[in-house]
Write a protein that binds this DNA or RNA. Structure first.
Lengths: 132, 132
DNA sequence: CCGCATCCATTTGGATACTG
DNA sequence: CAGTATCCAAATGGATGCGG
């Protein structure tokens, strides 16, 4: 698969494949996915641990995010039939390969965040001439 | 910056930095950003060309996406003061470095999309026992 | 040609209350 | 403890019409 097949999504490319790939990228880029995957990097965690570890996530969104990840086969879910219930989550092999790739992007972001924020300041101050 | 600083967002990490990095990842992961950047890979394009090249994008979203990318310094915008107006867009150096990193993720998605979709089918059929 | 403003439908996500 | 269900607010994004 070539670059243009993956990212271009031109009318004359294989749109079907592009759509499927983009769908995965959208999933990865949503508000909580990378945070949850990144948190599970350290090993198996219980629902409550994850909830405390991922600052700001609601119970609802943690549940939804974990369900998506489980459905995609990126995270495994183990229920221990005890009272009270105990449910553990861990990255699968597939999940670990994604983590590696996602970290590259995170590093890019970390490397360039200062430049990006400087660009934003320039852009904004050029629009609001305040003291010009 | 370590892995945990970038992705973990634990309560005891540098939340401020994490939030800023995540903000960039969210931008990259939104519906149109990678598509536009990927399309500009080939070189300078006019607004109308982009609009035709990125299948399915509305004029409004193309404008908004380009503004964001311009503000972040990922895309440059050149206005030719002619009649009718002619506006050209091109990746900046920063934009090109992002393209390289983003392609890694796109390739990961392309490599694993079949496995992910198979996982989804398994998951869904395990939930709806239909003929079980 | 480029793109902004308005209106509106859909989606997303948080707060809360409730169940096994 | 680990979810599910409901309600509601905010963000997202398309369609359309206007303006430089």
């Amino acid at each position: 698969m070539t670059e243009r097949d993956v990212l271009a999504l031109r009318t004359d490319a294989d749109e079907e494949t592009c759509r499927r790939v983009l769908q995965v990228l959208a999933r990865v880029g949503d508000k909580w996915t990378l945070l949850v995957i990144g948190t599970l990097r350290e090993g198996t965690m219980r629902f409550g641990e994850l909830h405390r570890a991922v600052t700001g996530i609601s119970q609802r969104m943690l549940t939804l995010t974990l369900r998506q990840l489980e459905r995609d086969g990126l995270v495994g879910r183990t229920v221990h039939p005890s009272v009270p219930p105990k449910v553990e989550y861990a990255l699968t092999e597939l999940g670990r390969t994604l983590l590696g790739t996602a970290l590259q992007l995170a590093w890019w972001a970390a490397d360039h965040i200062d430049e990006i924020e400087a660009n934003r300041r320039d852009y904004d101050s050029a629009l609001s001439p305040a003291g010009d």
